[in-house]
Design a binder for these strands. Structure first.
Ligand code: ZN
Length: 319
DNA sequence: CGAGTTTGACCGGCGC
DNA sequence: GCGCCGGTCAAACTCG
């Protein structure tokens, strides 16, 4: 396994670098006449200086943009390589190994449960990444686990919620009707089962359960896709959901912080999250899993990132 | 009174 | 075949 990819920690995806200082953006660029028609007026020297400064800034920003683009290309390329290696490894399994690893649906479910357990018990949220990068005697099996995780058309979302809020209600933009609750074997916190309130015309279900170790973290598993729009009119909720749907086809894991849910989104926190190592790890993990399934990965990722950045910019602008 | 929630019963798949 | 477990059903209940 190529360790270079994982070793390049913390995956220096400096998403904010291209934005530069905010004032460089908020000042409108000089128009053509200001740049080129200045005569021998007293203001000329100052204008020229301003113009050259602005041009310099513009050039710098263009360079940054170019660099970001190249970085993105590089990551896409690396993830393609990664995917190829996963496929190669899978192909090299002998039939006997295959039978040992995925002999029956039950065994497959075991593997899934195993993963979920790790997920539930790991507040640092590096589950698959950690499992995947550790080269161990069972690395082939973990490779299969990775594949198992991205196979189903279900999406796991790990949400940070207010620890004081003991309910399992997640405002994701859709309306849900609870149809069951169960205490599962590996988690003392009950698991709640929800159906979309548009059922039976909409088949979507979700499971919500708190993490074993960190009860402020809840894990939401969505199954299926909605065949209708958002009933909710909340912009914030819908933005959250659009982030989810952008990734829903790839069976990826998404981390969302809902601590500020109900009030104004915490911009600084969101911004910090983008730069946060864990967030980046999750992001790149998403990139990897998205690539293995979704040819339109770049579009989805770009919209997810730009959505997050736009959210920050627009909310900062409102301050 | 209707819609949504709670909760014990039930069911099917699986391992032993 | 039996017991375990996750998932679902549906009657009873609650709330607006
Ligand atoms: Zn729906």
């Amino acid at each position: 396994m190529d360790k270079a990819w994982s070793r390049r920690s913390p995956l220096s995806l400096e998403l904010t670098v291209g934005l530069g200082p905010v004032d460089a953006i908020s000042h409108p660029p000089p128009n053509e006449s200001e740049l080129h028609t200045s005569r021998f007026s007293p203001k000329r020297a100052r204008d020229t200086q301003q113009a050259s400064e602005l041009e310099e800034k513009l050039t710098k920003m263009n360079e940054e943009n170019k660099r970001l683009g190249e970085m993105l290309d590089k990551y896409i390329e690396e993830n393609k390589t990664l995917r190829n290696k996963i496929e190669v490894r899978t192909d090299h399994f002998s039939p006997s190994e295959d039978q040992q690893n995925v002999a029956s649906p039950a065994k497959r479910r075991r593997i899934e449960n195993d993963l979920t357990m790790k997920l539930n018990g790991n507040p640092r949220r590096e589950t698959i990444d950690e499992t995947f990068r550790n080269e161990s005697p069972t690395s082939q099996e973990t490779c299969m686990k990775f594949q198992e995780e991205i196979k189903p058309k279900s999406t796991k979302i790990i949400m940070q919620t207010d620890p004081n809020d003991s309910s399992l209600v997640v405002k994701d933009g859709y309306q849900w009707r609870k149809y069951g609750q169960k205490v599962t074997r590996d988690n003392p916190s009950p698991r709640a089962y929800f159906k979309c309130s548009f059922a039976p015309s909409c088949p979507v279900k979700k499971k919500v359960q708190r993490s074993v170790e960190d009860k402020s973290v809840i894990i939401v598993t969505y199954e299926g896709e909605h065949n209708h729009g958002y009933p909710s009119t909340s912009l914030h909720e819908n933005r959250l959901l659009s982030c989810y749907t952008a990734n829903s086809t790839s069976g990826s894991i998404i981390t969302v912080d809902l601590t500020q849910q109900g009030s104004k989104p915490n911009v600084e926190k969101a911004c910090r999250e983008i730069q946060n190592q864990e967030f980046q790890t999750v992001l790149v993990k998403q990139m990897a899993s998205s690539l293995t399934k979704d040819p339109n990965f770049t579009t989805a990722l770009a919209s997810a990132i730009s959505g997050k950045i736009f959210e920050n910019i627009s909310d900062v602008g409102l301050e």
